[in-house]
Amino acid sequence: MSDQSTDDLANRRRLIARLTAIGQRLGYLLYLAAAALFFTGFATSFRGSMVTAIITCLLVGSLVLAPAIIFSYAVRAADREEPLP
């Protein structure tokens, strides 16, 4: 491999690793928000808007977190298979 293509590949892997880390943080944060909303609603009373917020947090968290986890495993496997400088 040439130095230019190696640098491009390393930059791309670093970018994907950064994006997956952000996606995982966001996904877990949304799960935490859903749990906090749930326990708040459990302690007080569930209103329609609170239930909607809980469901939205869970759905968006799942849509963000699942691909982030898969891509993080892919980046780690690529680093193990072919380490870059």
Score class of each variant (00 low, 15 high):
1 M>S: 04
1 M>N: 07
2 S>W: 04
2 S>L: 03
3 D>E: 14
3 D>R: 13
4 Q>L: 11
5 S>L: 12
5 S>H: 13
7 D>G: 11
7 D>P: 08
10 A>V: 00
10 A>F: 00
11 N>K: 07
12 R>G: 01
13 R>W: 09
14 R>Y: 00
14 R>W: 00
15 L>A: 10
16 I>K: 08
16 I>R: 08
17 A>H: 14
18 R>T: 09
18 R>I: 01
19 L>P: 05
21 A>E: 03
21 A>Q: 08
23 G>D: 10
24 Q>W: 03
24 Q>S: 05
25 R>Q: 10
25 R>C: 06
26 L>A: 14
26 L>K: 14
26 L>E: 12
27 G>A: 07
28 Y>C: 09
28 Y>N: 15
29 L>H: 13
29 L>V: 04
30 L>S: 07
31 Y>F: 10
33 A>T: 04
34 A>N: 12
34 A>C: 09
35 A>W: 00
35 A>V: 04
35 A>M: 03
36 A>Q: 14
38 F>R: 14
38 F>I: 04
38 F>H: 08
39 F>Y: 02
40 T>A: 12
40 T>V: 05
41 G>V: 04
41 G>D: 05
41 G>C: 05
41 G>S: 03
44 T>A: 05
44 T>G: 06
47 R>T: 11
47 R>W: 06
47 R>L: 02
48 G>K: 00
49 S>N: 08
49 S>E: 03
50 M>C: 02
53 A>V: 01
53 A>S: 10
53 A>R: 06
54 I>W: 00
54 I>P: 10
55 I>F: 09
56 T>R: 06
56 T>E: 01
58 L>K: 03
59 L>C: 03
60 V>W: 03
60 V>F: 01
61 G>I: 01
61 G>C: 12
61 G>R: 13
63 L>E: 09
63 L>P: 03
65 L>C: 04
65 L>G: 06
65 L>H: 10
66 A>E: 06
69 I>M: 13
69 I>S: 14
70 I>N: 13
70 I>T: 13
70 I>P: 10
71 F>W: 12
72 S>E: 15
73 Y>V: 15
73 Y>L: 15
74 A>F: 15
76 R>K: 13
76 R>T: 14
76 R>G: 10
78 A>D: 11
80 R>F: 03
81 E>M: 09
82 E>G: 02
82 E>D: 03
83 P>E: 01
83 P>F: 00
83 P>V: 00
85 P>Y: 12
